[in-house]
């Protein structure tokens, strides 16, 4: 060891003594701040909250119709899925105010009377590149709506619609859990969730590349 190196080594030892627990403490402070930002502040900042035009009780309606979800969320003749009902369907019952809820009054006065479609914010709206066949899942695979949409039929209120400020998607696609951890089948609606379920159920593997489903099954 040359003199120069010795000097340097000495300086290093000295520095270590003087600092004590400092570095570790600062490390922990930094870590804590970052974790706070990443886990708490970031999700809050990422999503904006929007209210639906007016409230709606699925459970109330579910009790009044004969055919469950399909009474309003029905299939068209061409096999496509109508999704959220249009004004035309609601008018059947709501030509005039029926009950006593303020929401219904808003609906009838603001939309039915004016012939305006309700600008519902759709929680499960998939991006434009996605083709989803409700027919394949509901008619052929006989899946229940709840498996993907959760027990929405029992809800009394509409929760606020959370929109990702960057992507414009509904938060329900990624799921409420910011880490992307899910406990129910309906917690997330990302592509991987579709893919996992397909794999689990052995839905045809038609891709040469991945030996999974070919992309055109769900994309358009």
């Amino acid at each position: 060891m040359g003199t120069e190196e010795k000097q340097i080594k000495h300086a290093a030892d000295h520095a270590a003594e003087g600092a004590g627990g400092g570095p570790i403490l600062f490390f922990i402070i930094g870590l804590a701040i970052a974790l706070g930002i990443g886990w708490i502040a970031f999700p809050k900042a990422l999503y904006s909250q929007k209210q639906q035009p007016f409230d709606f009780s699925h459970s109330l309606h579910n009790g009044l119709v004969d055919n469950g979800c399909e009474s309003c969320h029905f299939f068209r003749e061409d096999g496509s899925y109508a999704g959220v009902p249009k004004l035309a369907q609601c008018i059947g019952c709501h030509e005039d105010v029926q009950g006593s809820t303020p929401e219904e009054k808003v609906f009838v006065e603001e939309y039915v009377k004016k012939g305006k479609e309700v600008p519902w914010l759709i929680y499960s709206r998939q991006p434009d590149c996605v083709f989803f066949s409700h027919a394949a899942h509901v008619k052929v695979a006989k899946m229940k709506c709840e498996e993907c949409h959760g027990p929405i039929g029992e809800s009394k209120n509409l929760k606020p619609y959370e929109q990702n400020r960057i992507t414009g998607y509904s938060r329900d696609i990624w799921g409420q859990n910011i880490a992307g951890i899910k406990t129910h089948t309906y917690d997330r609606m990302k592509m991987d969730d579709c893919a996992d379920c397909h794999k689990e159920r052995g839905v045809k593997a038609s891709s040469v590349q991945t030996e999974r489903d070919a992309c055109f099954v769900c994309h358009k």
Binding site: E5, I8, K9, A11, A12, A15
Partner: peptide, 9 residues
């Protein structure tokens, strides 16, 4: 930089 022990090591 070489004078800093960490970097040196």
């Amino acid at each position: 930089l070489y004078k800093i022990p960490l970097f040196h090591n």
